[in-house]
């Protein structure tokens, strides 16, 4: 869809602060999300992501600072903000006792849409999210992935130009997650601005144009995924030999063009710092011409996980997905 991208900001956070008693959950967060782009708000549990989203969506009043959504101030014009955005909360906030279609009708009516519009749009949303067959079943019978999709469909009933998604894929199996990503990409193609929070570095990397990393309520880094990865250091070439016996010879060869390297005997692997493809090709040629048998050769760019480690000194998430579903947060008092 051809849409003129206006240069305006769809979402702005301006020095947002939120304190709960002595606990400062958000400590001066600022960022800008240009129209039609995706911002990934990345951080571990308790970093202040949810609280930031709650303030921007008018669910929570900032202790200080403010924000704008679609040009409307979140404190001065909360109703205008609510008319311009959709929200998909952390726990899928669909009404379990209502059917999928009734959920859409409930939110459609409360959004101030006409009955006719709600009826038509509900049908197309149900179809788009593959829920038509389940439309007249109570939402409590839905699977986790279906609930998320319904939640998203409900958030879209009033076609909001800005959509907030708080950990949209937490607790989803990998397949449902990939499906949801596809849907989100579709929304962006249609011109919707997204702000999504995530603990998954991979997710931010896949979806976001820009990433803001927050930890302990503060922004610790911001930029494009590539930019952030560059910050975490150079790329490296990873070479896996066929025989451990060749390691010594290979190290000598590689050292001539890349003096910083690391050897892992057990896995027959040499990791050498490199600037990019050119270095990889050079090392590859060098080793091949010497006749040393090679199992694998690759360029490894630092992952966002490395970025996080580099920025905070601790890992952002456990690599085990199962631990991500253990969300200690409850509604009201949030991360």
């Amino acid at each position: 869809m051809n849409q003129v991208r206006m240069s305006g900001a769809a979402v702005e956070a301006i020095d947002l602060v939120k304190r709960f008693g002595d606990n400062t959950a958000v400590d001066g967060v600022s960022f800008v999300v240009p129209e039609g782009t995706v911002l990934g708000l990345l951080g571990p549990n308790g970093a202040g992501k949810t609280t930031t989203v709650r303030m921007l969506t008018t669910l929570s009043v900032p202790t200080s600072g403010t924000g704008r959504v679609a040009g409307h101030d979140i404190i001065q014009e909360p109703d205008a903000v609510r008319r311009s955005m959709g929200l998909t909360g952390q726990a899928a906030t669909v009404d379990e006792l209502l059917t999928g279609r009734e959920n859409l009708r409930l939110i459609g009516r409360l959004s101030g849409l006409s009955r006719g519009y709600i009826r038509e749009t509900s049908e197309s949303l149900l179809e788009r999210f593959d829920l038509t067959a389940a439309a007249d079943r109570m939402a409590k019978t839905y699977s986790g992935g279906m609930r998320r999709r319904l939640d998203l469909a409900v958030s879209l009933i009033a076609a909001p130009p800005v959509l907030f998604l708080d950990e949209p894929t937490t607790g989803l199996d990998p397949r449902s997650r990939t499906e949801l990503w596809e849907v989100l990409r579709g929304l962006v193609r249609d011109g919707t601005t997204l702000l999504l929070t995530t603990q998954y570095l991979e997710e931010a990397d896949h979806l976001a144009d820009d990433i803001v990393v927050i930890d302990k309520g503060r922004v610790i880094a911001a930029g494009t995924p590539t930019h952030l990865k560059d910050q975490a250091g150079a790329a490296s070439v990873v070479l896996t030999l066929t025989h451990a016996a060749d390691l010594g010879r290979a190290v000598e060869l590689i050292r001539s063009c890349s003096p910083e390297l690391h050897v892992e005997e057990a896995s027959r692997r040499i990791t050498a710092q490199a600037d990019g493809l050119a270095d990889m090709t050079r090392i590859g040629n060098l080793v091949e011409s010497s006749g040393i048998p090679v199992d694998d050769l690759g360029l490894k760019r630092p992952s966002l996980d490395d970025v996080f480690l580099h920025l905070t000194g601790h890992r952002a998430e456990s690599t085990d997905d199962a631990t991500d579903t253990a969300e200690p947060e409850t509604a009201g008092v949030s991360a």
Binding site: M1, Q3, R83, R109, L113, T121, P161, G186, D190, T192
Partner: peptide, 22 residues
């Protein structure tokens, strides 16, 4: 796949009694 409407629908925020009924 149906595309979302990019033009926004008419929004008439419901009055207190209408929201209450819903």
């Amino acid at each position: 796949m149906t595309t979302l409407q990019t033009t926004r629908p008419v929004i008439a925020p419901p009055s207190l009694p209408r929201a209450t009924v819903t």
